[in-house]
């Protein structure tokens, strides 16, 4: 039987661009280019490697996001995923992590899955909680923050390098996995991959396709509220000296002045 893998990928504003807030204190997506979150490329890569090892596997990439989020799906398809699902609805504007996880959970269930693979965190929200929430909502094991992952005989195994220990983890499928940026460089799409991606199917769903009411998501349905956002004051210009042989001593004098030595 075929191994059904769903990879959750997010379309995010480029971190090297000038990210800021819109008037309603949601992310302003107008002025910054978007792209497939680099941390989700690692998830796509691990899905491709797991599929390679399996007798028969099918990879679906899934995103919840605006119209432009299709770019993220195309990129994942050009890397080698088989098909894509795009959940898009005007009522999704301003949805928070709990709302997004509800939409993802329903979409994953509707797609059908044995293994869900996520990135370790989104590069814009950087919460890193969605995979755990998704596992909770789906009622399946979470095997998260893996720097190494493999699937064999219906079992997913992985290594988690934590703050205080390295753990080897194991769970029976179906399961939700997340992988870190230590899991191995993601491949670049080949020209052939880019051409092939144009013909791969992209299914679009809206909230009604997933039996979700508008009130359950979006800014109104959010469980958290941002009351204010302030730009961090620019750091006042510091002293910069060129080393003419005394740079280390000058630095030491500065540290002494600030009472660090």
């Amino acid at each position: 039987m075929s191994l059904r893998i769903v990879v959750c990928v997010k379309y995010v504003p480029d971190a090297t661009g000038d990210r800021h807030f819109a008037e309603d204190l949601t992310l302003d997506r107008d002025d910054v280019d978007g792209l497939l979150s680099e941390l989700d490329e690692y998830a796509v890569e691990q899905a491709l490697q797991i599929a390679d090892e399996a007798d028969d596997a099918e990879i679906t990439v899934l995103t919840v996001g605006p119209e432009d989020a299709k770019d993220a799906l195309r990129k994942a398809l050009s890397m080698g995923a088989d098909k894509a699902v795009h959940v898009e609805d005007d009522d999704l504007h301003g949805t928070d992590a709990l709302g997004t996880s509800l939409v993802l959970a329903r979409a994953v269930e509707k797609t059908g899955y044995d293994l869900v693979i996520c990135g370790m965190a989104s590069t814009d929200g950087t919460m890193g909680v969605l995979p755990a929430i998704l596992a909770e909502r789906l009622g399946v094991p979470q095997v998260t923050l893996l720097s190494e992952v493999s699937v064999e005989d219906g079992t997913v195994k992985g290594r988690r390098d934590g703050d205080t220990a390295t753990e080897h983890l194991e769970a029976a499928l179906p399961a939700v996995v997340s992988v870190t940026d230590q899991s191995g460089e993601a491949r670049y799409p080949s020209f052939k991959g880019i051409m092939a991606a144009k013909k791969k199917p992209v299914t679009s769903w809206d909230l009604s396709d997933l039996d979700i009411e508008a009130e359950e998501v979006g800014l109104e349905g959010a469980w958290t509220k941002v009351d204010g956002a302030e730009e961090r004051p620019a750091r006042t210009a510091g002293t910069i000296v060129k080393d003419e042989g005394e740079g280390g001593k000058q630095l030491a004098a500065f540290l002494a002045e600030r009472k660090f030595v």
Partner: peptide, 11 residues
Amino acid sequence: AAAYTTKSRIT
């Protein structure tokens, strides 16, 4: 990336 400071609460 610490460019903004926000204040939020849970509703």
